[in-house]
Amino acid sequence: MMNPWRLRLLSQLDTLGTIRAVAQAANLSPSSVSQQLGVLEAETRTQLLERTGRRVRLTPAGLILARRARAILDHMEGVEAELRGFGEEPAGLVRLGAFQSAIHTMTVPAVTRLARRHPHLDVELLQLEPHESIPALRVGDADIIITTTDFDELPLGPDLDLVPVATDPILLVLPPGHPAAGGGPVDLAACADEPWAFDKPQSYMANLALRLCRQSGFEPRVVCRFSNYMMTLEHIEAGLSIALLPGLAVERSRYRVATRELAPHVTRTITAAIRHGSPPRAAVSAVLEALRDEGDLPLPGDG
């Protein structure tokens, strides 16, 4: 009989590509991952892996099993949920991944309301930036993610079902006394000589901000990089930099900063995503509904 945990490791190997990457994702040593996949080969009586130099790759049989494993695991989770509540009352664990600016503004209020409505439903919140959350969803480390579908940044495909839930403007954030702090939408080209605060290299917002600056004809002078929006806002509040940030990230009640929209306007669509073809679970549906309640976009056909 195949062990579900080992099936998950095999599915992760198909998605992540290397034993080392699977080990990091599963918090195991590479040798432990290799050993468990060897046990899975014994359980299935099939060669699932083959070595090519110092690397390991899936055999044709391994590829088939890895790509069926996700459906098998989803089905098992669906059956377990049905047994707990016969599929009527949301129950069990839902792993929800969301990027930083959506945690406090969308997911925490949604989870708080769910805890009151459905006492047998457990939601595990995971902070995952868009470039991290889609792989996590595909390998089964998350059941729902909050991501964004704009700017051609992310590898979306027919294996995911998408539900737009909100829109969010990209804003220029300035110290309160900055000469450009007042007025309407601003042309970024006017900020070419400013000191900039950026997110970590290759992150979603760092890539977006760099692209918008270059489209305006300049290379930004980056004076700091923070992976935490609170630190970025403190740096701006102190008058040390300016930044491009999503509207959800800017807590005006907490930080003395000014914001201006861009000309032309730039917005992103915040989207919930689940794996396509996953068995329907009352728990997942309840979380999606709560997220929609926190957003500003109806489901297609809602009117």
Rank of each mutant, 00 (worst) to 15 (best):
R281D: 00
R254G: 03
F86E: 12
D159S: 13
P195Y: 12
Y204E: 03
L248Q: 05
V79L: 13
Q35L: 15
V250H: 09
V123H: 00
A180R: 14
V250N: 08
H104K: 09
L126P: 00
G301Q: 09
V223P: 07
L126K: 08
D150K: 06
T44G: 07
Q36R: 02
A26P: 08
R57D: 08
R211M: 11
R51W: 11
L210Q: 15
A61S: 11
N27G: 12
H276T: 09
G17W: 09
M106Q: 08
P246G: 01
P195V: 06
L96T: 02
A190V: 10
R254T: 15
D141G: 05
L248Y: 13
R67E: 02
I134H: 02
C213Y: 12
E89V: 04
A192R: 03
A206L: 11
S11I: 09
L172V: 02
L297Q: 04
L299G: 09
F198H: 14
H104L: 13
Q215H: 09
A69C: 05
P185W: 08
E219I: 07
L188A: 10
A181T: 03
P155K: 01
E132K: 06
A273K: 00
G62K: 04
A190L: 15
R8W: 14
P119M: 01
D161A: 04
L65D: 00
L154H: 06
S34I: 15
P176N: 13
V186I: 14
L210W: 13
R254I: 13
R254C: 03
L248C: 02
I274Y: 01
H118F: 15
D193F: 10
E237D: 02
V123W: 04
G183C: 10
M106E: 10
R268S: 10
H75M: 12
A190N: 06
R113Q: 09
L16T: 09
M230N: 13
M231S: 14
V223T: 08
